[in-house]
């Protein structure tokens, strides 16, 4: 991509047109990756989401545009992430809008909207990397090689990190249940471990 980014951040209309012409097809493709049907399940047209992406870039006196740092990442990766994040936010917002009234007692995190019901594990039990690896292995059903590729590390690192995480979880659950690993989550009582 070749455009005058400084001019875009200064608010030059021609540079903006140039920028949007060069990025819009990537933005559309990125949104379609999140909403493959061309329309979100709740009726947002792709075009609306594309506009939302560019409005986000211009919001707060073009804060996002001004903070883009070409030394940290390419423009394609950056704009793809922003487009996907807008599409995901749109899906979440609609999910919140359609929640039943009796569920609206408090704020709901994105995690709660999409994660399967099950025991709640205190975040501090594991490191961030351990949590991520367990999540990719057990929630996303990825194998060790896929996780290693996704995190750009050696498969052996994944195996040893998984093992340490499982040790910690086993110790935690033993302490919680008096010597036994957790039983099947009780969905009805929303038992929180």
């Amino acid at each position: 991509m070749d455009f005058d980014f400084d001019a875009v951040t200064r608010g030059d209309a021609d540079a903006w047109q140039d920028f949007t012409d060069q990025t819009i097809r990537l933005v559309i493709a990125s949104i379609r990756r999140v909403c493959p049907s061309g329309k979100t399940p709740y009726g947002d047209e792709i075009d609306d989401l594309v506009q939302a992406v560019y409005i986000k870039l211009l919001r707060n006196d073009s804060r996002l545009l001004r903070h883009y740092d070409p030394t940290k990442s390419g423009i394609s990766t950056w704009i793809t992430l922003i487009a996907r994040s807008v599409a995901i936010d749109s899906l979440r917002r609609r999910t919140l809008d359609t929640r039943p009234m009796d569920d609206a007692s408090g704020a709901v995190s994105p995690q709660e909207q999409v994660a399967p019901i099950g025991p709640v594990i205190p975040t501090h039990i594991l490191t961030a990397r351990q949590r991520l690896i367990l999540t990719m292995l057990f929630e996303d059903d990825m194998d060790v090689a896929e996780v290693a590729e996704g995190l750009n590390v050696n498969p052996q690192t994944i195996r040893s990190t998984k093992h340490k995480a499982m040790e910690r979880l086993r110790a935690y659950f033993k302490g919680e249940s008096g010597g036994d690993v957790p039983r099947e989550p009780d969905v009805q009582s929303e038992d929180r471990i």
Binding site: R25, L26, I28, A29, S30, R32, R33, V34, S76, T77, T80, L81, R84, S85, I88, L91, R92, S109, P110, Q111, V114, A115, T123, A128, R131, L132, L134, T135, M136, E139, D140, E149, G150, N152
Partner: peptide, 23 residues
């Protein structure tokens, strides 16, 4: 990424496959 499944899938997909083909 551990706590946000949708973002995780989008980010890992981007890391593995790169930006999508343009539409």
């Amino acid at each position: 990424l551990a706590s946000d499944p949708q973002l995780r899938r989008a980010v890992i997909d981007l890391r593995l496959s790169g930006p999508p083909q343009v539409d």
